[in-house]
Amino acid sequence: MSTSNISVRNIYKIFGIHTAAALDLLKQEKSKAEILAQTGCNVGLNNISLEIPEGKIFVIMGLSGSGKSTLVRHINRLIDPTRGEILIDDKNILAFNETELRDLRRHKISMVFQSFGLLPHWTVLDNSAFALLTRGEKKSTARQRAMESLKLVGLTDYAKYYPDQLSGGMRQRVGLARALTADTDIILMDEAFSALDPLIRGEMQEQLLDLEERLHKTIVFITHDLDEALRIGNQIAILWDGSLVQVGTPEDILQRPANDYVKRFVEKRVAA
């Protein structure tokens, strides 16, 4: 069984045309709003460095718009950074050519999407088999293994349904099954549990921890919810407005919040 580590080094992501000008302003410590006003560029990520260890669950937290989805999309290069390096197993994936990149996506990394990204004209079973079909495996084997993932997420009865016949939470679980079928070392999960009701959510968290224990996958998990982060995360990174404010174990976050922003997350939890 192999596992993979990820390291993100000094990543900047600027959305817009005049990225060089925006980068300069950013180095002068100008705020996101000022840069937007002056250059028309939107700062997505500002100098992010992370060491994501292999075989652990790494949680990324932050408010809406803080850059979580943008950050995680860099790891499978759905987005390319404006500056910086991304290494997987010590290989610089920004230097990969098209074939190497496709190989990486086929065999190393899978992703669960915030708004699911299922194919509406494919059945739940075929959606779940997507990764294997992409690799060119036989339909029957692909479907057989897809069925096993559907069993894990509790959707065997819905294999023949189409996504638009399912609830939001069920669709999210199809997205999860699709990533599980791919059976990759790394799974990126962008708010993968956000559409689930509390009961199923708890169950899925349980299963994720269990999966982690058995298979030692490297999981990058995005969430809004501190409770969830504390429950499943070995390490938690907190983003604010595209910048990293704190990285640490759940204990660090709870006991030694780096600033008021983190403190507010923690206090809200205590109040609740």
């Binding site: 990149l101 990486l104 999407f113 699911f116 990204g117 194919l119 509406p120 992409t134 699709r178 791919a182």
Partner: peptide, 10 residues
């Protein structure tokens, strides 16, 4: 997202 998801699986 459907396009991106498919693409992300290589």
């Amino acid at each position: 997202e459907a396009r991106e998801a498919a693409w992300s699986f290589g």
